[in-house]
Design a protein around this nucleic acid. Structure first.
Length: 423
RNA sequence: GGAGAGAUGGCAGAGUGGUCGAAUGCGGCGGUCUCGAAAACCGUUGUCCGUCGUAAGAUGGACCGGGGGUUCGAAUCCCCCUCUCUCCGCCA
């Protein structure tokens, strides 16, 4: 959520920046500003009213004590008038505030000034590419066939138990999952991230805090009976740890990492490009989150991006770093790098991580702030990234490392899997 | 699932109708003392929204889990909701 002060002070800047995201903010900005003026005017009236009422109440108290009940009763009449007026004003104020809020949440985050305009994924900028793209033999297979061939992932049994998008990992497949999770967590911890194990279900307030609600409830699984949501990413519970908190400047940066299963309904996304592990309803992911001083967040963004690159390097996967253009960025993002690995059998780049700086967009909504010395609280910057999401990593590992004798495990993972080859 | 208790400032914990944004203790910050530190002592210490001001600040309002009600006046009385804790039941 944008800060009202930003909009009030630089309306044209807001409109221009949002145009980069192909978002026409003209009307909404106008509306927010006019509602803001109404809000302040109404509040002034209400406050004056209440101030008078407060002082009358005190007077009445004194009068009664001194036995001057006639005078007190006269004042009561004025007090009653004020009460009626205050009630109307406060209802009006509430209504204006709600309206303003409802408009405010429709405005996406401003993209960083360096973000180029663009329509969609085709206009993203590849800022780095690394690793050797393997050339596979004639009878190479996509990962879903390899999974069946070596009996490590069973999609059909998953369908029987739950439905499509819920695979069953078996044998070395299951072990590979566990190995990757540990590998990612250990690396994050070695890089100064504090590991947390969050709940996989969150309440309404949390879903709201990170922006899944009120808009995107359809993307989450929902438990009606308990009014809880299955998390689409551990970003939700981890970030919400810091909801309604004022940190001290010395506590920054906060660095957390968490493994969680992630649950996504992805309604309407069935169809092409979703075979095998490419898109699932339940998958595993290790997330990294940082809360930083506003002056440090872009430095941190680079650091987080480089950290994820390091993981891909250790896994010996060819990858590229893509800077998203305005049109492809998410609602809440100010700057996003996507990291993609090449899956050699599908001959396709697969997004495995998204590293994003939200600046104050999340912290403003979360009421997550920090204080320098005795200064006023101010919003922090929040960032997060996948480090990493498993399924597409597994897909690329299987496809790229297939050989006539089996699938080779990258060296760095062997101490975690306990085997060097899947055969 | 059944029964009971509770929700107050960073924490602990008083406060049952007006002088309460709220005692006291701890913690934090500043100071005195000290070569320095500890102890002791003194002072200070919440958030949000307005108004005035370049600012420092001044000032109005709101906030004692959330919402509603009674009253001239509510942390305090009444109603509803949420959450937490304890005991019983069930259970990895």
């Amino acid at each position: 959520m944008l800060q009202i002060s930003t909009i009030r002070e630089n309306p044209h800047e807001v409109i221009n920046r949002l145009a980069i995201k192909n978002f026409d903010a003209n009307e909404l900005v106008k509306k927010v500003i006019s509602l803001d003026a109404q809000r302040r005017e109404t509040q002034k009236k209400l406050d004056d009213n209440l101030a008078e009422a407060n002082s009358i109440a005190k007077e009445i108290g004194v009068l009664f004590k001194n036995g001057k009940s006639a005078e007190a009763n006269a004042l009561k009449e004025r007090s009653a008038e004020l009460k009626t007026a205050s009630k109307e004003l406060s209802e009006l104020l509430q209504q204006i505030e709600n309206e303003q809020y409802n408009v405010l949440v429709l405005l996406p985050n401003l993209p960083h000034p360096s973000i180029p305009k663009g329509k969609g994924a085709d206009d993203n900028i590849v800022v780095a590419e690394e690793g050797v793209i393997p050339v596979l033999g004639e009878n190479s297979l996509p990962h879903w066939d390899l999974a069946t061939k070596y009996d490590i992932i069973d999609f059909e049994t998953g369908v029987k138990i739950t439905g499509s998008g819920f695979p069953v990992y078996k044998g070395k497949g299951a072990r590979l999952q566990r190995a990757l999770i540990n590998f990612f967590l250990d690396n994050a911890v070695a890089n100064g991230y504090v590991e947390v194990q969050p709940p996989f279900l969150v309440n309404e307030n949390s879903a709201f805090g990170t922006g899944q609600l009120p808009d995107k409830e359809g993307q989450m699984y929902y438990i009606v009976e308990d009014n809880l949501y299955l998390i689409p990413t551990s970003e939700v519970p981890v970030t919400n740890i810091y909801r309604d908190i004022i940190l001290k400047a010395e506590q920054l940066p906060v660095k957390n990492t968490a493994y969680s299963a992630c649950f996504r309904r992805e309604a309407g996304s069935y169809g092409k490009d979703v075979r095998g592990l490419n898109r699932l309803h339940q998958f595993d992911k290790v997330e990294i989150v940082q809360i930083t001083h506003p002056d440090k967040s872009y430095e941190t963004l680079e650091e987080m991006k480089d950290y994820v690159c390091g993981l891909l390097r250790k896994l010996e996967l060819p990858f590229r770093v893509v800077k998203l253009c305005g049109g492809d960025m998410s609602f809440a993002s100010a700057f996003t790098y996507d990291l993609e690995v090449y899956a050699a059998a599908q001959q396709k780049w697969l997004e495995v991580s998204s590293v994003t700086n939200f600046e104050t967009f999340q912290s403003n909504r979360l009421k997550l702030r920090f204080r320098e010395g005795n200064g006023k609280p101010q919003p922090v910057h929040t960032l997060n990234g996948s480090a990493l999401a498993l399924p597409r990593i597994v897909a690329a590992l299987l496809e790229n490392n297939q050989t006539p004798v089996g699938i080779k495990i990258p060296k760095a993972l062997v101490e975690y899997t306990g085997f060097e080859i899947i055969n």
